[in-house]
Design a protein around this nucleic acid. Structure first.
Length: 874
DNA sequence: ACATCCCGCCATGCT
DNA sequence: AGCATGGCGGGATGT
């Protein structure tokens, strides 16, 4: 952590991460003034700028900048950022209308560009076309569900297998388009063509729109995302994606030109996905050379959808619709939208019902525009599961922290910057679940059922809102504020009332709380974005969002852009923090925090990046391996650590996520933002059922964990270390859960997220071996025990990272090692998690090391190493 | 030289 | 016809 914090880094980071600068600008701009905003593109110049930029600066540059405008300034990704900045990630129930013309005008781009963005967003159901020229904004509200659906569809299509085949083929250089095609047909068999997958709530509303046959960009986007979701490493190289996409396209002639075109489109899609922070770009060094590839950085765990997917018939018909051009579909969609949606919702289970109820209640209570309502409504709107997951994660983190104060602190420090951003509701849950062993859960179970209901607030992702509800219902988890945690462990749960309080809106900028915008802002802030930009963006966006862009613009008041305000706010926040965790006056505070982090005092974006990088690295190796086309070995020794690539992937994923989520959240978000205590109601049954579900659905073995440590400047060998840690669940609960099988059926779990969390913690989830992930070539030196080394992958950071001292240009070598968990006793019944802790001497970045297994209980490990390589480069 | 991918022509299909 | 969409690929720009 320490290393992360270095300010200097931050500066560098700016250079490293293209987005950061941009995001900062965006935030500033949005905050600043509409006018400025309009000029954004002019302004943005180089990545160099830092967050500190003042609006004024922008304006100054503006004139000249035009000339200067480089291609990058007009990139789709940047444009998308700007676009996203205008809307909250988690909008209130009220639909935000988007007018294409307005957007195009405001962003000063041709409509054509907006279409590109909208098509991709539409594929993720973040927006839906409401009418000619109009779209409705959904933000990330349905993202988790959509991703879950896409994953299930992707699995059906056997994309994972296809990717593997292609990789292998590539490895052998046997790849031939025609061949490929055949194979695809033969194998995939099912459907070569993917149709657009609709979301229950988001069907195309405009009949005219539906008619359109193509929508290729949308379909491509979905397929592309599917590839990530089904691939174990969650890494997809551009060429493989292009090949698969081509393969599915009808026969057609697949020649280079077609391939080129596909690649062009993929870049377009990738750019928006990157701006959404769902993927990051990096390079894989294959035999052939450096290949562009993308790593999934979005949520890995997707809640409830599985059920749906499994029940193919229902699912197919209702949930996901594959859009075919047919009128029929359109009609269905139209109808179904409401109906389907419901069904969909139901599936998830009771939770949803509850949620809906709450939602309704809230709506009733609060006026649409009222801020308060937003908060409540938001929470209601959002998925319970995800929120729950977040809570769970938080709890875990806290627990962990408690358990080991030492580690925690560092982690916290490092986390803050990035974590908060990253922490998205969905992610968090995942991470949390993954990371923590059942320990937390156990305690929870043990605890008396409290009666607090946790309601995540849309406004601030970080801050969960607790509502007092029936008490005594069930066990609850208590989340402690990080700060408090440090000193104390569980000790103080604070009353829910706090949450409520916090709900009040305050403007960080000074806007009036009452303004709707404020309300929206909250949600926005809530969303977790990894990059600092997001934070800013969110803020800005939030202000703007609520009201149509116009309104925003008109209102100068809204701007917060001034750094002063932020500083002040931060100061305030700090003061508050210091005082108590508990007292979070307003959601805004939350917002501020992130900013604060970014602010000079904190490491800011840089740190975040570094963290991200680290995380990425962890993931990377695996992916790279896969990508590289190393022949994967299917059967890998299961027992010990199950080195399977799959396992690895999962592990990586989990770990990465965990670290991701955990780290950041705990440190940053949690500490500052989180109120003293949260209670999460968890039912054992649900846990169990959930567990089963997962088991059935996916088996994962977590026992082994592989981490690669990329060494940034350093030579691979030296730098990498992997340490597996074992976590064991001490609690009986887990065992119990395991023992008792429940049906995963919908009924069971109130909150999938929680379940997942629990399961993961327990280690229940195991993935069956096999499938894709194959093992990489073993290399073993690194891993002790039975580790099987996965393989070496060389990854070259797209952008040279400042980090590496010595060899800028050189590719980094990442080595992923898998360590078999064998060492850890499964005895406890809990799977062990291995965390990677690796201190990398060379890289300053990689500092973190967490204690390796702490037997006892919860130890959270955060991946510390940072890769020099920056995932994304622009 | 190659990787990215912006730009905008022009097809498509609705109104 | 006029307009909204968006496929598509030339060719500019970045590395």
């Amino acid at each position: 952590m320490g290393p992360f914090t270095t300010p200097k880094k931050r500066v560098e980071a700016g250079s490293v991460d293209p987005w950061t600068p941009t995001s900062n600008l965006k935030m500033l701009i949005s905050a600043a003034s509409p006018e400025i905003r309009n000029r954004e593109k002019e302004l943005c110049m180089d990545a160099d700028d830092r967050d500190g930029l003042d609006p004024t600066q922008d304006s100054e540059n503006g004139d000249e900048s035009e000339k200067m405008i480089s291609r990058k300034d007009k990139s789709l990704g940047l444009l998308c950022h700007k676009f996203l900045a205008r809307y909250p990630d988690y909008p209130n129930s009220v639909l935000t209308d988007i007018c294409l013309d307005d957007v195009a005008t405001e962003l000063s781009v041709e409509r054509r560009r907006i279409y590109d963005i909208m098509n991709v967003l539409e594929s993720l159901h973040m927006v839906s076309r409401s009418a000619k020229n109009r779209y409705s904004w959904h933000g990330r509200t349905k993202l988790a569900e959509t991703l879950a659906i896409l994953r299930s569809v992707g699995e059906k299509h056997r994309y994972g297998q296809q990717m593997q085949q292609i990789r292998q083929r590539v490895a052998y250089r046997e790849f031939d388009f025609r061949q490929e095609e055949k194979e695809n047909e033969a194998e995939g068999g099912e459907q070569k063509e993917l149709f657009f997958v609709e979301h229950p709530g988001v069907e195309f509303k405009a009949a005219s729109v539906n008619s359109r046959k193509d929508k290729s960009l949308r379909v491509m986007s979905q397929k592309f995302v599917m590839l990530f979701l089904v691939s174990k490493p969650h890494v997809v190289s551009l060429d493989i994606a292009a090949k698969i996409l081509i393969g599915e396209d009808h026969v057609a002639d697949q020649d280079k030109s077609k391939f080129k075109t596909k690649v062009r489109r993929l870049y377009d899609i990738a750019n928006v996905l990157r701006s959404l922070k769902l993927i990051e770009k990096f390079h894989v060094m294959e035999a052939g050379g450096r290949k562009p590839a993308f790593k999934w950085t979005g949520p890995v765990e997707l809640p409830p959808v599985q059920d749906l997917s499994k029940s193919s018939p229902e699912f197919a018909s209702k949930k996901k619709r594959v859009l075919e051009p047919s009128v029929e579909n359109c009609a269905k969609n139209l109808f179904s939208s409401s109906g389907a949606k419901r069904s969909f919702t139901r599936h998830p289970s009771l939770i949803k019902l509850a949620k809906s109820i709450q939602e309704d209640r809230r709506k009733i209570n609060s006026a649409p525009s009222s801020p308060s309502k937003c908060v409540l409504g938001d929470s209601a709107n959002e998925d319970f599961p995800s929120k729950m997951a977040q809570l769970a994660a938080i709890c875990k983190i806290k627990l962990d922290q408690e358990s080991r104060p030492k580690e925690r602190d560092p982690a916290a420090e490092r986390l803050p910057p990035t974590a908060s951003d990253h922490m998205e509701p969905p992610k968090v849950p995942l991470t949390a679940a993954n990371q923590e062993p059942g320990i937390h859960l156990t305690p929870l179970a043990g605890q008396a059922p409290g009666g607090v209901t946790f309601i995540p607030t849309q406004c601030s992702p970080l801050i969960p809102v607790l509502l007092p509800q029936q008490r005594g219902n069930g066990p609850y988890a208590i989340y402690l504020h990080p700060s408090s945690l440090r000193s104390n462990v569980l000790a103080r749960p604070q009353p829910t009332s706090l949450a409520v309080r916090s709900m009040t809106f305050e403007d960080k900028t000074g806007r009036s709380p009452s303004a709707p915008s404020a309300a929206k802002s909250r949600p926005a802030s809530r969303e977790s974005d990894s990059s600092p930009l997001t934070h800013k963006r969110q803020h800005s966006s939030s202000t703007a969002e609520s009201s149509p862009s116009k309104a925003k613009r008109s209102d100068p008041n809204f701007k917060d852009g001034s750094p002063k305000l932020s500083k002040i706010l931060q100061a305030r926040l700090k003061a508050r923090r210091g005082a108590h965790l508990v007292s979070r006056p307003s959601p805004r505070a939350l917002h501020l925090d992130p900013e604060f982090v970014n602010t000079p005092g904190a490491a800011g974006p840089t740190l975040e990046h570094s963290l991200e990088n680290l995380l990425d690295r962890d993931d990377r190796p695996v992916t790279s391996d896969l990508e590289a086309g190393f022949t994967p070995v299917r059967a890998v020794p299961l027992t010990p650590g199950q080195i399977h690539s799959e396992v690895n992937d999962q592990l990586c994923r989990v770990q990465g996520r965990k670290t991701f989520g955990l780290t950041p959240s705990p440190s940053r978000s949690l500490q500052t933002l989180v109120p003293a205590g949260y209670l999460i109601p968890i039912s054992q049954q649900s846990l169990i059922s959930y567990r089963e579900l997962q088991n059935s659905a996916e088996e994962t073995n977590k026992s082994s964990s592989i981490y690669q440590t990329p060494t940034a400047g350093s030579r691979p060998a030296a730098a990498l270390e992997v340490t597996p840690t074992n976590l064991r669940l001490s609690k009986p609960l887990a065992a119990a859960a395991l023992s008792s099988p429940h049906q995963p059926s919908r009924v069971s779990s109130p909150s999938p997220a929680i379940l997942n969390f629990t399961l993961q913690n327990l280690g229940l989830i195991s993935s069956p071996g096999g499938a894709f992930g194959s093992s990489q070539p073993p290399e073993g030196a690194g891993a002790p025990l039975g580790l099987q080394p996965r393989g070496l992958v060389f990854i070259k950071p797209v952008s040279p990272v400042p980090v590496q001292p010595s060899l800028p240009g050189q590719p980094l070598t990442l080595i992923s090692l898998q360590q078999p968990l064998m060492a850890t006793p499964k005895a406890s019944g809990l799977p062990q998690h291995s965390f990677f802790h690796t201190p990398v001497p060379l890289s300053p970045l990689a500092a973190m090391v967490t204690a390796s297994g702490q037997p006892a209980s919860n130890s959270v490990y955060v991946p510390q190493r940072k890769l020099d390589v920056s995932a994304e480069d622009s």
